[in-house]
Write a protein that binds this DNA or RNA. Sequence first.
DNA 1: CTAAAACCTCTAGCGGCTTTAGCTGCAAGA
DNA 2: TCTTGCAGCTAAAGCCGCTAGAGGTTTTAG
Lengths: 138, 138
Amino acid sequence: MLTIGDLAKTTGVKVPTIRYYEQMGLLSHAERSEGNQRRYSRSQRDRLSFIKHARELGLTIEAIRELIDLSQHPEKPCAEADRIAAEQLATVRQKIAKLKKLEAELERISTHCHSNHVRDCYVIRALANHDLCETDHD
Amino acid sequence: MLTIGDLAKTTGVKVPTIRYYEQMGLLSHAERSEGNQRRYSRSQRDRLSFIKHARELGLTIEAIRELIDLSQHPEKPCAEADRIAAEQLATVRQKIAKLKKLEAELERISTHCHSNHVRDCYVIRALANHDLCETDHD
DNA sequence: CTAAAACCTCTAGCGGCTTTAGCTGCAAGA
DNA sequence: TCTTGCAGCTAAAGCCGCTAGAGGTTTTAG
């Protein structure tokens, strides 16, 4: 049996975060020692790794909950899991597209200023005046 | 003089958000009508546009506060403003890099599953087992 | 003059944690 | 055996950048 600290070390998830996941229902309530400390099994460690991986991919707690529920029912069709992954992919792509626009404008702004004083600073003028933008980025 | 609603319409910033910015010290306390309603000048509208543009570019409230403080001192060197823009550019690039890794992995995961049941679902197996990943994405 | 729209303040909520305060548990060294 | 000090516990508050709601007041159009 692993203590919460062991679990934190082996998975790379911080101790308070593990407790938070338990509270959110992603991890089932752990067994307790006589002194009321949490004790974990290997399968709970595996589940935590699952959660960590999913979080790294940007899935929400809610989406992860759905995936965990699904994984408890191996007979069900996996269309739902596919949908969750596909939606997350779409979300990530949207974010990339948006950030690329920002990158372009920020690059233009920050390479443009060869002034020495705030009065003529292109950074500040560009922020004050949206018309100086080349792309839309609303 | 503009009401807060006028300001919201012309800048595209929602009314409660304007009040929030005032509370955060980005907008100075507006003058008030006899009935205690906010009244804005054109220069305050310009400042709000500045704030909006900066937020669209992803700058934090704190960074915007610094920029506003700077813009009040036209004689100062603008190196600080350049630094803020450059830092934001670096942040945006990091985010893009990270999201691209996620995109690659999500794409691989979600195009890989041709199973019908959760038991064999690649999405779920991939999430359970980080070893199936091709790239690091911590 | 009235009704509706816009405004006001204050408070709470969102997600995904992190931090803090004030405890108790437990193992190792003196 | 005692103590030291890390690890664990719970409950609550804080973070960011808003957004939403309750319950009241002011302004404006007709």
